[in-house]
Design a protein around this nucleic acid. Sequence first.
DNA 1: GTTTATGCAAAGGCTTTGCATTTCA
DNA 2: TGAAATGCAAAGCCTTTGCATAAAC
Lengths: 153, 153
Amino acid sequence: MAATETSQHVQRLFSDYLERNKHRKTPERFAILSEIYAHEGHFDIEQLYGRMKSKNYRVSRATLYNTMELLLDCQLVRRHRFQGAQAQFEKAHAYRQHDHAVCDRCGKVQEFCDPRIQQIRNTVSEVMDLEVTHHALLIHGICKDCRNERNEQ
Amino acid sequence: MAATETSQHVQRLFSDYLERNKHRKTPERFAILSEIYAHEGHFDIEQLYGRMKSKNYRVSRATLYNTMELLLDCQLVRRHRFQGAQAQFEKAHAYRQHDHAVCDRCGKVQEFCDPRIQQIRNTVSEVMDLEVTHHALLIHGICKDCRNERNEQ
DNA sequence: GTTTATGCAAAGGCTTTGCATTTCA
DNA sequence: TGAAATGCAAAGCCTTTGCATAAAC
């Protein structure tokens, strides 16, 4: 699927979501979604704010936070807290399910997929009678580079 | 293993850790560890502070935060960020590996074990050349009670 | 015309930091 | 005795809130 196609598609999904939930379709909301889907990888609110500012979008941090709540609710965005207090986000649609491995020394985050996680989800859902919406698996460790550095010192 | 035995054991582990890393063995540090191991379940700094205050331990929040870093480093405690900014902790030793399922509506946290997660860890470790120290799997969903409430409204 | 959303700045909550004092080694 | 840890309060950072203004419906 081409980038523009995906972008149009999520705009549509967001539009439908707003309509369903009687929220207003403001230009800011669509501009934010568009900016998010124009980039790959993780970002925090400050980075998103900076990117929009630099393109001369007039948007406030408050609106960014508010809009992220909506985008989380309709599953177009996912939120992580890898380390520290500040939340990291990433787009969630048309981006295959994946999890994260983080190096606790340098903070580097890598992605991986493993089908077994789906089986675990199914089991947990059954056993606990939980209507599972999503999950986050974070594997912590020390990456190769950091191990080498440690040994050199 | 009896509770006191475990407690003595972790005190020993902590003591060794402090020695190895040339940290001082202060009474505060051992009192904090002891208080943590005297309880089950998750807790945050404020709760720990309250519990120690109520027992007339004289300890500051700063020392609690500092000591948690040490306990995290030597793996006697684990830190989670289930939701919101504030960190939740739980003791990690002699407490079998488990993961968490959280209801996004009421915030209830349940624990579960699944051996398949270990297989995933092994795979990730191999493929990414990561020296895995620990992991955290969080399964999000809506619990039975909350689903029922939603339907009644 | 109402009601909702925005933007700004102020307030809030959790965590970290600075510094004088105390304590461990 | 000298270096490290403690306690307190202040500062920091991320996030939320309050309120006047603007915009959607």
